[in-house]
């Protein structure tokens, strides 16, 4: 186990790159930042939403190819067979003729990708790269599962309470 912990590479100062990720990241101070152990992520789940399934498919191909080149373990990539339809039914006429309606709909296609076993620096690099190349009209949602040790104060039962 000690070996495993030693083989964890120290986090590289990559934080400056992560501008497009929504969230709060600690800012590394310019004067010799204390080496901080790299984070571990067991899973990265990416959900894509778009109006055109073909664009999503091309993008998935791009992301999985990039993962192959970077040596990231791929998980299941799938998409639901049917799109989500949001329908609006209105009267065709201004206010009478109730039997005649017109229907508008907005379709949202989904696509999911899973990646496993990423270190913090790998995840930041990979996510940054694929987010920068996100085509227009596609929304991306990345769920990251971070692994952490049990905090010091929870390892032993409290001696006095």
């Amino acid at each position: 186990m000690l070996q495993a912990l030693k083989s964890l590479r120290w986090a590289q100062p990559l934080r400056a790159l992560s501008t497009s990720t929504a969230g709060t990241q600690p800012i590394v101070s310019p004067k010799t930042p204390a080496p901080e152990p790299d984070k571990l992520y067991s899973k990265l789940e990416i959900e894509l939403r778009g109006i055109d399934p073909a664009v999503l498919k091309s993008y998935t191909w791009f992301a999985t190819t990039a993962a192959d080149h970077l040596g990231i373990e791929k998980g299941k990539c799938w998409s639901p067979r049917k799109a989500h339809h949001e329908r609006m039914t209105l009267l065709k006429s201004v206010h009478i003729y109730k039997k005649h309606r017109v229907q508008y709909e907005v379709r949202t296609h989904f696509r999911y990708m899973n990646f496993h076993k990423l270190t913090g620096s790998t995840l930041d690099t990979f996510l940054e790269y694929i987010e920068r190349n996100l085509p227009e009209g596609v929304a991306l949602q990345a769920s990251k599962t971070e692994l952490q040790q049990i905090p010091e104060h929870l390892r032993q039962p409290p001696e006095q309470v």
């Binding site: 939403r49 109006i51 055109d52 949001e86 227009e136 009209g137 596609v138 929304a139």
Partner: peptide
């Protein structure tokens, strides 16, 4: 979406946009 494509490409019209 079948013969012609959209003129505006954004994520606001998608679900939860």
């Amino acid at each position: 979406g079948h013969r012609k494509s959209w003129n505006s490409w954004n994520t606001s019209t998608l679900e939860d946009g």
